[in-house]
Design a protein around this nucleic acid. Structure first.
Length: 509
RNA sequence: GCCCCCAUCGUCUAGCGGCCUAGGACACCACCCCUUCAAGGUGGCGACACGGGUUCAAAUCCCGUUGGGGGUGCCA
């Protein structure tokens, strides 16, 4: 595993000067007021550090976004670090998923991606340093043994059994000697000061018996090496923060330059549980597939835990950046509400120019699952109808049922709607009248409108009632884009053909 | 069990001691507009978890209770 040592330099494409950063970095001093994002502070360095153990989900997207926003707000550096120390669980494809997700969201990193799997020598150095300084001890207890021993204790967890047994370092798990008394204070921008009594902390493992480092160790070593100034992550990591601080101080001394911590409130499901890959629909990819716009997605995500001072909700990303502040992030968990996100997505879609909408949506449609075969997609028709569609959809996937009747020989008939008209004499007469009138009139939107209005008057119906069976015949559905515009684009031949088709269906059924 | 976090309309939030008979947004309901559906417009419904303090004054500060959540891996 040490064979990758060279890679540290190879991929360590750092552009900052460690000396200048570390010497002037006085940002966080536990005990003093949390953070001041004053202009006098040096440019912050933040990192998004996902582990590639599954598909990319919305919680990760939110964390990435807030890191990115903070970096952009303060002209800082946004670093991507892949935490792939767990060889068992990590997979190459998940790493690719992280990259493509960030790219889709538009959260481009300034540095990285670093891979922890290529930085093991760094962790080994740190481990040796800690071992030599007496901060660690070797432990050969199995999980079962620990459980057995601590079953009746008030505070389960490892009991320090091997602390003074003097096992040799190699071949054993390495544990950190947590002080028996005192406490570690975590200073958090969002939550203030949080104290963790040492008595409630177990001697945690920092390296597996095979020598590989664990998350909390690699995490701290990298944050130090990369001069991370602000650790912005989910609140679920708050309980591991005192461990990180203990390691930090063991490595750098009591006056270590700790980063500013900011633990974001969790994103939760309707049952108010932390979003889970297993039980909640949180794959970022699924939202791309459903036709959400990345900018709208980010806009919505930014609103989860943060809000613009004026209360405005629909904002360009630049405006979010210029007003974003960690101090303004609130404390409580937020429900990931697809309904509201969908509304925001609709706002974004409607605010596009029609040309942009055509561009974005047609590209999306190319990859979408649609009832028409790909070669049937007619850009000239789509261009003519797109403006009418744009005002009516909140997600791109809603376009499909709105335009399918343009691209298919025959529409997909809504059986329920058709059955309502079965044998209905008025509907039959009305459709026959329409068939007759539409055969002879000029083929223009206004004329079709007038003709239908005339028919409505003859049957003593409101236009909205009279157009219903015609709409069903032409589009197959009860709802859709404006009818007369649609007929005008579809052409006389297809419209007449479809009127006959529906007549046939309701007469014979 | 133990440790930690959180607590304003159903949801996201504004509020950082008086401007609050608590504001906005989504959702919902009604009406208007209208070629369906949307969009848009108008109006409506709807919350400070509870109990103690502190204060002339508390949604805002403190304590407790209750409720919810997170953590407690040789996962991250």
């Amino acid at each position: 595993m040490d064979s990758k040592t060279q890679d540290n330099d190879m991929q360590g494409n750092k552009t900052h000067n460690p000396d200048s950063t570390s010497s002037s970095r006085q940002i966080s001093r536990p005990g003093q007021s949390p953070t001041q994002d004053t202009p006098s502070n040096p440019a912050p360095r933040v990192r998004f550090a996902p582990s590639p153990t599954g598909y990319f989900h919305v919680g990760s997207a939110r964390t990435a976004l807030f890191n990115w926003l903070y970096a952009r707000r303060h002209q800082g550096t946004f670093i991507l670090r892949i935490e792939d120390t767990d060889k068992e669980r990590g997979k190459e494809e998940w790493t690719e998923g992280i990259l493509s997700a960030l790219d889709w969201l538009g959260l481009h990193y300034d540095e990285g991606p670093y891979h922890q799997s290529e930085r093991t020598s760094l962790y080994n150095e740190a481990l040796s340093k800690l071992w030599d300084a007496g901060f660690l001890y070797a432990c050969n207890c199995t999980r079962e043994e620990v459980l057995e021993r601590t079953r009746n204790n008030q505070t389960p967890g490892y009991d320090g059994h091997c602390r003074d047994l003097g096992y040799s370092r190699s071949g054993h798990a390495l544990r950190f000697k947590v002080p028996r008394s005192g406490l570690t204070a975590v200073t958090d921008v969002i939550r203030g000061n949080v104290d963790f009594p040492h008595q409630a902390m177990e001697d945690f493992v920092v390296a597996k018996s095979d020598g590989s480092p664990l998350f909390v160790l690699a995490n701290v070593v990298d944050d130090i090496d990369m001069d991370i100034t602000h650790v912005i992550r989910g609140e679920d990591l708050l309980p591991s923060t005192p461990k990180a601080i203990l390691i930090w101080k063991a490595l750098q001394g009591e006056d270590a330059n700790l980063p500013v911590f900011a633990h974001l409130p969790m994103l939760v499901n309707e049952k108010r549980q932390k979003l889970s890959k297993r039980r909640d629909p949180v794959a970022l990819e699924s939202y791309r597939l459903k036709g959400y716009i990345p900018d709208a997605f980010c806009n919505y995500l930014a609103l989860l835990g943060w809000s613009h001072p004026s209360g405005k909700e629909i904002m360009k990303i630049d405006e979010i950046i210029s007003t974003f502040s960690l101090e303004d992030v609130n404390h409580s968990p937020a429900f990931f509400d697809v309904v509201k996100m969908t509304h925001i997505n609709g706002e974004y879609i409607r605010s596009m120019s029609t040309a942009d909408f055509i561009d974005v949506s047609s590209k999306w449609l190319e990859e979408a699952e649609a009832p028409w075969s790909r070669d049937r997609f007619d850009m000239s028709i789509y261009t003519r109808i797109a403006g009418l569609i744009q005002e009516r959809v909140a997600t791109l996937s809603e376009i499909i049922p709105m335009i399918d009747f343009f691209l298919l020989d025959m529409p997909i008939y809504d059986d329920n709607a058709v059955s309502v008209l079965d044998g209905n004499p008025e509907a039959i007469h009305l459709l026959e009248t329409a068939l007759e009138r539409f055969s002879g009139c000029d083929w223009e939107t206004d004329v079709l409108h007038e003709q239908t209005a005339t028919i409505a008057a003859e049957y003593d119906l409101k236009l909205s009632k009279a157009q219903a069976p015609i709409r069903l015949a032409v589009t197959g559905k009860k709802v859709g884009p404006p009818l007369f515009e649609s007929m005008s684009i579809l052409g006389r031949e297809k419209v007449l053909q479809r009127l006959q088709e529906l007549l046939y269906r309701i007469k014979t059924n």
